[in-house]
Every structure is written in C-alpha cells, then in structure tokens.
Design a protein around this nucleic acid. Structure first.
Length: 561
DNA sequence: TCATTTGGCGCC
DNA sequence: AAAGGGCGCCAAATGA
C-alpha cells in the first residue's frame, strides 16, 4: 500500500498525474496519468489514506475541493517544508517555490518567488501553476525529486523527529486553512447591524460617516476651540498644546490621563470611528457573504509560525463584535482557548523546577503569586510577561530580579536567547522552526545618541528581544499547530453521513473554534481535550507542565469563557 | 499622482 | 541604567 502519493496537476484541464512513493520517497511505480485528477485523488483517499505530496496546498487543494466532497487527511506541502528547512539551514528569505527548490537541487539559477503584488507585469496565473519550474521540466518529476531531497534534509537536522512533526503539522495546517477559508466563520449580519446601530446610530447613506461620529468630531473641535482633524495626531497634539495641555502622544492611555475635557470626547470619537472604519457596514459587505466571514489564512505568514491573514483582519476581531458570531440553528460553537500558553511553554522548555510546579496547575500566575510574589497575582503576571518580552522598564525591573532568584533555569533560557540574538545568532523553537538572521539591522553609524547608546547597540538589543520572544512564541505556535492537526484528524473521524459534520471555523494563535451540530458538541469538546493532550506529549514529551484548553460550548462567540 | 512610512489600535 | 514580542488595518504624513 502506498504511503505517499506525489501529485501534479496538468497545466490546463482537469487531468493530472500521480505517482506512488515508498517511505523514503522513492517511486514504487511509474507515473500514472489520470483524466480527472480530483476524482482520482478522492478515490485513492478513501482506499489508501496516503500522504499527498504536492507543490503547494494553497494552489492545488482549493481546486480539488471545488470538485470533490472528500477532504484529505494528510499532505506534504513542498513549499512550506522548503521554507522550514531553508530557515533551519540559515537560508531564510531564499525562494521556496518548487521551481526554486528544483533549481538549488540541480545547481541552476534560482528563480525568485512570485510577488503577490504582481508588480513586474508577469501573468502570474501560469507562473503559479508551474511553481516557477523551467518549461522543460516535468512537474511530477520535480515534485518527486524535491520531496526525496527534503526527506534527506529533514533526516540531517539535529532533531529529525521533531522536524518531521513540524513539517507534518505545518502541512496539516495548510489543509485546515484552505478548508476554513471555504467554510467560513458563521457571522450574523443582523446582530452585527444591530450592534453598529446601537453604537453609531442609523447607517448613513452612501458610506458617509455616521452622524454620531461627526458630532463627536465637532464637539472635540469646540472643546479645543480650533478646527482640527481628530484623525491627525500632529494636529491633535498642537491643539492640546494651545489649550495648555502638553502630551507626548495621542495614544489612548495618554489621553485617559490628560487633564482636559476634550480628551474624553476624543477617546470616544476614536473608539466609534474605529469601529466604523475597521468593522463597520462597509467591512461586512466586503467580507461577509451568505452568513459566513471568509478570511484568507496565510500559513506560516509570521516567522514565528503563527498564521497571518489576508484581508478582513480575521485575527483582530474586536471582542465587541463577537456577539455577531452565532452558530446556525441546531448547531453550537465549541470554543477552546489555551490559557497562559506562553508561560507554560517557557516552563516546559526550560524544565525550571519552580515554574514547572506552577505550570502543573490551572492558574500559573496565582500559583506564582503564592510562592514568590506575596500573593499579588497582577505582579506575577507582569513579571513573567516582561521576562518573555524583554521588558525591563518600570516595575518590571524589580520583578525580574525576583524571577531570576526563584526561577533561574527559566530566566537563563530567555536571557540566553536574547544574548544569542544580540550577537547575531539564530534561535529555534521546540520543533526546530528557526528565527531569521538580523541582516541589515546592524548597518548604521556608531554615533551615540543623547542617551549614550549607539544605534547599532540599540538595534542589537531590539533583536535580542525578538529572539527572546521568538523562542517562546514559536514554540507556542508549534504546540497550537499540533493541536490543530490532531483536532482536524479527530473531527474527520466524527464526520458522519447525512448530517453536517463538525467543522473547524477559526484559529487564532492559541484558540480554535469548531462549528458543530448540537448533538456532536460534547464529542467535539472531548476531541479538543484529547488533541491538547496529544499535542503536549508530541511537542514537549514527558513534562509535568499542563496545557489546558478551556473549552466552552456556546451558541454565540461572545458567551465563550 | 502614487507608493511607502508613520501613528495609533485591534487581536494574541 | 535602560531597553516591553508578533501581526493587519486605517488614515495621515511623507517621499519620489
């Protein structure tokens, strides 16, 4: 039975070619042309459950799903794996298309990745189909060869089994991302509308700004006695200066502390005008269709392995709007949120005894407060976050001293990561995702600025904060991706015939959401919990640290947790 | 004029 | 002694 099947779509038409591979990626049969690639893939999926090997999930999988109802279990995404391997080998930023990998393999000139801006007038439709391969190279041949080479490269890293897991999870994430973009997040236009009307007043005609927002702008101008554009930080600062209030910026925490009645008006203005411009009626018309919000997820869009999105700002849905996310009739949302994920990751990675003890329970900050911060949970939280972000100013400085004394191994881990970054080195996540090199950040003069710190030193320290946080954030992303992959597999097993199956509909760093028929909601919640346990064991092995996923079964996102 | 950068703020 | 991590999006400001 084939473990792996390499796939290439024909440049035109519904056909393609398949080739079965053994566990090393060696072909076990000749390439097989199929007239209908989608149905051929669907048939083999049901019979063999192979891992599909292809150039890029985001290119091929949507086209397959257009034509078959079957969802695929596993894949090896050559482009995503190439990016992981290049990063691990210190080659961040090199082109990662199939064509680029093929060219490196054959010591040929390496084509740039297509720019999604499409600036240089390239008809990128064909280019994308060919994945930057030269015209005389057969795509299936390249898929097979690059895949075999990637397997060799994975085997050559320091922890091949971890890298294998990372590649599998990243590829599973790519499948999930395509599926989630198609399924969409249930979004009630009616609830959204009611919310907007309550906040902003009736919808103005022709995309104009709501009267309530305009009125706040006018009231702000009266309060400072000048015609001022409230959206212009420079004008606002000047206006406050003229009424005798000197502000360092127009950020909200500065305005909150400002001693002038105009500040409160401006804060309210900013709040409402932001809702209108970022998530108002125009946003909904652009992004919500047929009761679903369909963002496009970009797997690996952040160097740390977090996902990004293109359009719609799916990863920044304000809490205020969560009440618009409503399950279909007869359905529920299973919302699962990993609590205190990053400090738990720090505990597991460092093996710090004290921190691991705190992370064995349900509320790390409370435990830390009890053992090290005189019962002050707030300070415990600030201190731990400061340790992971590299903050040392203000209160954080003293808290770090306490942490260093009580949790030396954990602090040693983040400080070593920072030193590595300051020295221009790279750091890796638990599964081997690698930070980029600082490249051009070191350029610049050695002139000292007013505070006696040269720009180069400043840049080095900024990079140290980046690598310090990368270690934690990227390992948290490793874990979250492993959860997503496990949950996707478990949900597929719950997929019964004759009713809507549970679907992943949202994934945001440390949170997943499943839309499910109500009668399956408990089974989904159980699958979520099992996925968290599975991911913890796979990523961190035998650790006392718990990674709880707080799960709620709700009709409306706003009611979660 | 269009493209890029900046300030601010939403999410984690 | 001091230095808070990552993203996307909007509108304004700046630059070519």
């Amino acid at each position: 039975m084939a473990e792996l099947i390499a796939v290439a779509a024909d440049p035109v038409g519904p056909g393609g070619r398949l080739q079965a591979l053994d566990g090393d990626g060696t072909p076990v049969s000749a390439a097989e042309p199929v007239p209908d690639l989608a149905s051929a893939v669907a048939g083999r999926e049901q019979r063999l459950r192979p891992r599909w090997v292809w150039a890029a999930t985001d290119d091929l999988y949507p086209r397959l799903l257009d034509r078959i109802p079957v969802r695929l279990g596993r894949c090896h995404d050559l482009k995503l794996v190439e990016a992981l391997l290049l990063g691990h080998e210190g080659g961040h930023g090199q082109p990662r298309s199939l064509g680029a990998a093929w060219a490196r393999l054959h010591r040929l000139p390496v084509p740039d990745d297509p720019r999604d801006g499409g600036t240089d007038g390239q008809p990128s439709l064909f280019a994308a189909d060919r994945h930057q391969l030269p015209p005389d190279v057969d795509q299936l041949t390249a898929v097979v060869a690059v895949h075999a080479e990637q397997r060799r490269r994975i085997a050559a890293v320091e922890h091949p089994e971890r890298m294998r897991l990372l590649c599998a999870a990243e590829s599973a994430g790519a499948l999930a991302a395509v599926e989630m973009a198609r399924d969409g997040l249930p979004w009630s236009a009616a609830v959204h509308d009611a919310l907007l009307t309550e906040l902003l007043g009736p919808r103005p005609a022709g995309g104009a700004r709501p009267e309530r927002v305009e009125r706040l702008a006018a009231r702000f101008q009266e309060a400072v006695g000048r015609p001022v554009n409230p959206d212009s930080p420079a004008q606002v600062l000047a206006a406050f200066a003229r009424v005798g209030v000197s502000l360092p910026s127009t950020r909200s925490h500065v305005l909150k502390a400002a001693d002038h009645p105009a500040a409160a008006i401006l804060l309210r203005y900013k709040e409402l005008s932001r809702v209108h411009s970022a998530h108002g009626w125009a946003w909904r018309e652009q992004w919500v269709r047929d009761g679903r919000f369909r963002p496009e997820y970009v797997v690996g869009g952040v160097v740390s392995g977090r996902w990004a999105t293109r359009g719609g700002g799916a990863l920044q849905i304000p809490r205020l709007l969560r009440s618009a996310v409503v399950a279909d009739p007869g359905h529920r949302l299973v919302v699962a949120d990993a609590g205190q994920l990053e400090p738990r990751v720090l505990a597991a990675m460092s093996g710090d005894r004290g921190l691991c003890a705190a992370a064995a329970g349900g509320d790390m900050y409370a435990d830390l407060a009890r053992t090290a911060f005189d019962g002050d949970r707030g300070r415990a939280k600030i201190g731990l976050l400061a340790a992971m972000y590299g903050q040392t100013s203000g209160e954080a400085g003293q808290l770090l001293a306490i942490l260093r004394r009580r949790f030396p191994a954990a602090m040693a881990l983040v400080e070593e990561a920072a030193r590595t970054g300051e020295a221009g080195g790279v750091v890796r996540s638990q599964l081997g995702r690698t930070s980029p090199r600082p490249s051009d950040l070191w350029a610049g003069s050695d002139e000292e600025s007013a505070d006696g710190v040269s720009p180069a030193l400043r840049a080095a320290r900024a990079w140290g904060r980046f690598t310090r946080n990368f270690t934690i954030q990227a390992s948290a992303a490793d874990w979250a991706l492993a959860v997503l992959a496990a949950l996707r597999r478990r949900l597929a097993a719950l997929d019964g015939y004759g009713r809507t199956p549970p679907r992943l509909v949202f994934f945001q760093h440390d949170e997943v959401m499943v839309h499910t028929p109500v009668e399956l909601s408990e089974a989904v919640a159980a699958a979520v919990a099992e996925s968290a346990r599975e991911a913890s064991r796979l990523v961190f092995g035998d650790t006392p640290v718990r990674f709880p996923l707080e799960t709620s079964v709700v009709e409306c996102y706003a009611d979660a947790k």
